[in-house]
Each structure stands twice: as C-alpha cells, then as structure tokens.
C-alpha cells in the first residue's frame, strides 16, 4: 500500500525541473544541481510549538529518527510529528508512517523546525485514515530563508473517514509542500486548507491533488496567502473526480494578496471531472491590501505598519478559524500572529 515518493536526495536524476508540468513554478533542479552531502547528527533542542498539547511524538533530527517512525492511533490520541533540521549546506530525508484505526480520532500536530542554513530537507508522510476514523492534521513550517525543502504527504481516506489538514508556512528559498489525497468517499469528508505568509525572496509551493474514487464524498479547500517583497507564492490545487464518483461535492478557493510590486503569485486550480451529477466549484483571487481601509486605520491613529499587519492577519485568519481543534487553533493563531 505504501506509495512511492519519486524524489531521492541521493540521486540528482530524480530532481524535477520546470520541464515537468507539476514543477513548472518550483524548479528544484535549478537550485539543486547535484545531490547534497548527507547531513550529520543534530540535537533535538526546544520542545516545539505544540508541546503544551501533549500526546505521543515522532521526532526526526536531520532525517534520523529519535525513537519510532510509525504510529497507529486507536481511540482518541494526539501525535506530535516533528521534522527537525539543523544543518549547513547538507541534505537529509525523513519518512513517517501514521494510521488511524477505524473509529479513532487523531490530532496530528506536525512541525517542520529548521535551523542552520542552506540545507536540503525531504520529509515524507504516509497517512491512512480508516473507515470512520477522524484525523485533524495541523502543520507549522518554519525554515531558514536559504533552505530548500520538499514535504510530501500521501493520504488515504477510507469510506466514511474524516480528514482535515491545515498547513501554515512562511516559506524558504525553495519550498514545496505537496499533499496527495485518495478519497474513498462514501460519506468521507476532506478539508485541505493552508496559508502562506512570505517575506524577502522566499518561495513556497502548496500543491495538492485530491482524487475522488468513490461516490458521495466531499472536499473543501481554502488556501490564503500573502507575498511581500520579492517573494513568490505558488498554489496548485487539483481535484479529480473519477468515473463513478457521483454525488461528489468539491469546493476549492485560493485567495492571495500581493503586498509589493515585485512579489509574485502563481495559481493553478484544476477540476478534472469524469463523473456525472457532481457539484464542483473553484474560486481564485489575487489582490492587494485595501488602500482605503489602510488610510481609515491610520486616520484613527494606527501606524501604517501596524495597520498592514492587522489587515494581513484579518485576511489570513479565516484559514486558522477553520481549524476544528481549539487548542491547535490557538497555537496556530499565536504562531501566525508572532510572524506578521
């Protein structure tokens, strides 16, 4: 059942370039011509942003597992999944496998915690959500501005399962966060949200593919982003409704703000529908901060920078508000607020 991850950091031949359509906006080959030297060991350091929410933990430090790499949830559980990078100019790969048994309720709190510089990280996750299980995955990603990272998650949602994810990232030199969800539907629900807040010359690429293979499944996706300075935000969202997946209800929205003339947003929403009797919708907008709101706030005494931060937060917070779990939602809210 284990899905293959095509990229192998030890083999430069596997690095996609913009000639591959799915990597058009994130040319890995351009930034990474040769396989990086393997990273050495790293200390685990501080306990990570989700520590206070407790639960079990899977921890990788520069790709090395500190303890287990696999986790099977039953009943109601919390798992912190931490990908820690602390390296200079080297590369490492980490892979975790998580599954939620039938009826289990799992809160999966994932962090990508980067220190050092110019490292290359490849972090993967295989996640199975069994029939009737419920998984909420919240991902916070913070990496140095010169790091390269690829995070790939392959998620399988069985009939009647519930899977919700929210990715919150501040980008890196080249960052790709890819999620592939196979949706067995029959009442199963998927939420695939995310937000990005990019400064400087950072780049992030939120790519997702949700494949509805059975009938009567629902997918809802809300991605919001802000690109400042010369940053570049990429959203590629694909929803495929296979033949026979009738009764699918899929909604996708991507809304971004460009906060500088030199920033860039590339968005590619795709709905591919082979079934009849489906409801699918997508919306995509790219705009700027509302100048009249900005003036109004300044007129009342709020300095320009503070007004911009408040408007930016107000724009992005909708994604955080959709996080079902209150504790995780508050951690994500504080994490974002501290980075505005």
């Amino acid at each position: 059942m284990s899905a293959a991850f095509a990229i192998d950091l030890t083999d430069a031949e596997t690095f996609p370039s913009r000639r591959t359509e799915a990597w058009k906006y994130s040319d890995l080959k351009r930034w990474l011509r040769a396989a990086p030297e393997p990273s050495g060991t790293a200390a685990v350091g501080p306990p990570g942003p989700f520590y206070d929410l407790g639960g079990e933990a899977i921890v990788f430090a520069n790709g090395r597992a500190v303890g287990v790499t696999d986790f099977i949830a039953s009943g109601e559980q919390t798992l912190r999944l931490r990908y820690i990078s602390d390296a200079v100019g080297t590369g490492h790969t980490a892979g975790a496998r998580v599954s939620a048994r039938a009826g289990a309720k799992l809160l999966l709190l994932e962090t990508h915690e980067g220190a050092g510089s110019a490292y290359v990280a490849h972090n993967t996750l295989e996640l199975d959500v069994a029939a009737g299980a419920e998984v909420t995955r919240v991902v916070l990603v913070e990496e140095p501005e010169d790091a390269i990272s690829i995070a790939e998650a392959h998620v399988k949602v069985e009939a009647g399962g519930v899977y919700r994810q929210t990715i919150v990232t501040t980008g890196a030199k080249l960052q790709r966060i890819e999620t592939r969800i196979t949706h067995y539907a029959q009442g199963a629900q998927v939420q695939a949200d995310g937000l990005y807040l990019l400064n400087g010359s950072r780049h992030t690429d939120l790519t997702s593919v949700v494949r509805h293979v059975e009938h009567d499944g629902a997918t809802s996706q809300l991605i919001k982003g802000v690109a400042r300075d010369t940053a570049r935000g990429v959203f590629q969202g694909k929803i495929v409704v296979e033949r026979g997946a009738d009764g699918t209800d899929a909604r996708m929205g991507h809304h971004a703000l460009i906060a500088s003339e030199r920033a860039e947003i590339d968005a590619k929403p795709e709905l591919i529908i082979y079934a009849d009797d489906v409801q699918c919708a997508h919306g995509n907008t790219v705009g700027t901060l509302d100048e009249s709101a900005l003036f109004y706030m300044q007129q009342r005494g709020i300095p320009a920078d503070e007004a911009r931060a408040l408007l930016t937060q107000a724009f992005l917070i909708e994604v955080i508000d959709r996080i079902e779990h209150e504790g995780a939602r508050e951690v994500a809210r504080e994490w974002l607020t501290a980075r505005l």
Binding site: Y296, R300, L310, L311, Q313, A314, I317, E318
Partner: peptide, 13 residues
C-alpha cells in the same frame, strides 16, 4: 479625527 462620509468596512477586525 475625520469622520468619513462613507465609513470603511474592515472584514476580520
């Protein structure tokens, strides 16, 4: 203090 003829709506705040 300028009271606006058409006060601005600020969603999210």
């Amino acid at each position: 203090f300028l009271s606006f003829q058409y006060p601005i709506e600020i969603p999210g705040v």
